[in-house]
Design a binder for these strands. Sequence first.
DNA 1: GTCTATAAAAGGATAGAC
DNA 2: GTCTATCCTTTTATAGAC
Lengths: 203, 203
Amino acid sequence: MAADTRTKIIHAAMELFWLKGFNSTSVADILSRTQLNSGSLYHFFPGKQDVLVGVLEAYRDGIEEMLLKPAWEGVDDPIEQIFALLSLYRRLIVESDCAYGCPIGSLALELHEPDPKVRELLAENFRGWTRAIERCLDQAAARLPHDADRQALAEFVLTTMEGGVMQARTHRDVGYFDRAVEMLRRHFALLEQAAHARARTHA
Amino acid sequence: MAADTRTKIIHAAMELFWLKGFNSTSVADILSRTQLNSGSLYHFFPGKQDVLVGVLEAYRDGIEEMLLKPAWEGVDDPIEQIFALLSLYRRLIVESDCAYGCPIGSLALELHEPDPKVRELLAENFRGWTRAIERCLDQAAARLPHDADRQALAEFVLTTMEGGVMQARTHRDVGYFDRAVEMLRRHFALLEQAAHARARTHA
DNA sequence: GTCTATAAAAGGATAGAC
DNA sequence: GTCTATCCTTTTATAGAC
């Protein structure tokens, strides 16, 4: 089915905000890419800010289908699902010649005084991401120390992704991302070891 | 001594780029804050982009005096120096009501097609930061597993800081930063344990 | 719902006197 | 080195016909 006008605008803006950022994307850019006219855009959106709201809602609502499902294709182990998601980001980095930036993270740092709706949507996007990781950790709970803070650990996976993406992009070298992920893997290995050791002690 | 014009511009731009970002800071903003006129700025800088270069050079050249020295006041243990630096960021987050963003990280994600000079300066800033951490790790080498990759570990400290700052800012809650740092602390604790265990085995 | 034309403002940068 | 005035472009947004 041909996308309706509103959807076309959201998708074009999604890509442009990702490629150039919010401030560097003009309404004219969006119109030119969609082959629409000013009147159409302002019929659906009061202003550019509202297009951003639509884009952030689309990211939030698409996390399952557009991000997690592709990343977890054929991966069953919950811990490996976490690293499979990180591998997907690695692919995006490589495919963009290390110019990739997480669209949510980039917007979160670009917008210095976002209106409350925008800020809340950025936070919702992060929460959706970390909750997905948290579900993996819950499934793997038996392999982790029982006092492990799974929420904090899930947030730390996001921390690793965002920090790794930022450095890979800045240095234009995916090695920075790889090493960050490797550190996280080592952390999980140490946690699983600690859980084992403790289990043995109490056996 | 009264700062000369060039310095005044750099300092004003430094603060404005940090508060509002590069694209959202106009030349007029800089002029208004410095009480200077357009002619003065363009006498010292060919354009706005070049002011940015000056700002990034100032950050790079000031890392020791402006960042590390204050952070490490009275802290001798090299591992504790790492966490003292992170504590300084925590203070900045709290003092800004959780609106704080790392100026380098924010610019690194805001500027999507930076010219080579700007990109290289962003990278140099990150390198200066991670090298400082690496020096701490070198001093603490005996307490870490001997096969520990200290460069990767130093980069991971930056990863933690940047990811933690980004989430604290987005959620407007310093707890996100605290939990990221706590995870890192746990990682260091596990590393020191592993180093100990191995040392005992080989004794 | 979409089109064209255009208003209204902001932004980067320059010119030329002093 | 600094001042004022101003050019030119880009940008967001609106008006009103269709």
